[in-house]
Amino acid sequence: MFRKSHKSNDKKRSLVVRDQPRSPISEQFRTIRTNIQFSSVDENMQVIMTTSSGPTEGKTTVNSNLAVTMGQQGGNVLLIDADMRKPSVHYTFRLPNHVGLTNVITKQRELQDVTHSTDIEGLDVLTCGPLPPNPSELLGSQKMKDFLMEARQEYDHIVIDTPPVLAVTDAQIVAGLSDGVVLVVDSGHTEKEDARKATELLNHTNAKMLGAVLNSQERKASNYMYYYG
């Protein structure tokens, strides 16, 4: 299990890895990145999906900072907002969201035409784009599979943000297309039963569960660094 601890009053949607690269929290995100890379020696963890059991658990903040750490390490990284219900990656990076993933999947636009470069070298962001009436069907389509195959050829690492597992089936669908899944759990908000149920649903998709990030944990003087167990 991956565990990340930090104070619960950290600024929402903060790119702390970019803005405070020497902080303990940034170091924890770098350790998460390293543990993901070493989580399966014999398999390539190219496409990583992050999700949570419910809303407001910090999954977008976690995956955005994770994508930044991957970009800082080198190589080409693509952060995809596949939350077609309530997208928020564009808020985190202060990007427009007029076009994006939905346009690419429906063959209205080409991938390279709608990705956004960021101030992190090597990191591109693909926002959600217009909200479709049928998110689950779109994510489960052959066109989505074709898009990810194209993205795999263009990028070394791909990080995908999805809706909460217990809310809709979208995350389960994307999990089946990913190499590994990270579940974000809020220590002061997530019910144990909800986290357990979310894990079971993801396991039913044969997704490879890499671990969980424990979010919003109060930092203690003797126990404030990142743990792996």
Rank of each mutant, 00 (worst) to 15 (best):
M45A: 11
G229D: 12
E110C: 00
H204F: 11
K7S: 09
T118L: 10
F2T: 06
V213I: 12
N97S: 00
Q217S: 06
V104D: 04
S216L: 06
F38Q: 03
L126N: 03
D146E: 15
A171K: 13
L214H: 04
G140M: 01
M209L: 15
E43W: 01
V41A: 13
S178C: 15
M149Y: 12
T115Q: 11
Q72V: 05
V62H: 02
H98P: 05
E154N: 14
T61H: 03
I80S: 12
V182D: 04
L123H: 09
I48P: 10
V104W: 05
M209E: 11
G129K: 06
D113H: 02
V114I: 14
T205A: 08
T127P: 10
D179E: 09
V165Y: 01
R219K: 14
L138N: 08
I158D: 03
Q142L: 12
P24W: 02
K220N: 06
L139R: 08
I25N: 00
L95R: 00
E110P: 04
T61L: 02
K208R: 08
Q217A: 02
F147G: 08
S178A: 15
L166F: 05
Q108G: 15
I36R: 10
T199Y: 12
E150W: 11
L214K: 12
S26F: 03
E193S: 11
L123P: 11
L15P: 00
F93K: 07
K145V: 03
V77N: 01
P21V: 02
V68M: 03
Q72G: 05
G100R: 05
E121T: 14
M49V: 11
S26W: 00
A167K: 10
V174Y: 04
P132H: 10
M144D: 15
E121W: 01
V165E: 03
N97F: 02
D81Y: 08
A82P: 05
V16L: 07
E154A: 15
T56S: 13
G188I: 01
V77R: 07
T34N: 11
Q153K: 15
Y226T: 07
N206F: 06
I32K: 02
L95P: 04
I32W: 06
L123N: 06
T56R: 14
A195V: 03
T118R: 09
E121S: 15
L66K: 07
S40E: 14
L78E: 07
P135N: 09
S5T: 08
V174Q: 00
S53R: 06
D81I: 08
P24S: 02
R13T: 01
H204I: 07
L183Q: 07
E110W: 04
I160K: 04
V168R: 01
G176F: 05
K145L: 06
A82I: 03
L123G: 11
T115Y: 05
S187E: 13
R3F: 10
I158S: 03
N97M: 02
S88C: 12
M84H: 02
S88K: 05
A175D: 00
K192V: 05
M49T: 13
T61R: 06
S88P: 03
V181N: 12
E110K: 14
N44R: 14
I105P: 00
E193C: 00
S222K: 14
Q217T: 00
V89C: 07
K192Q: 11
G180I: 07
H157W: 10
S40M: 09
D81G: 08
Q72S: 05
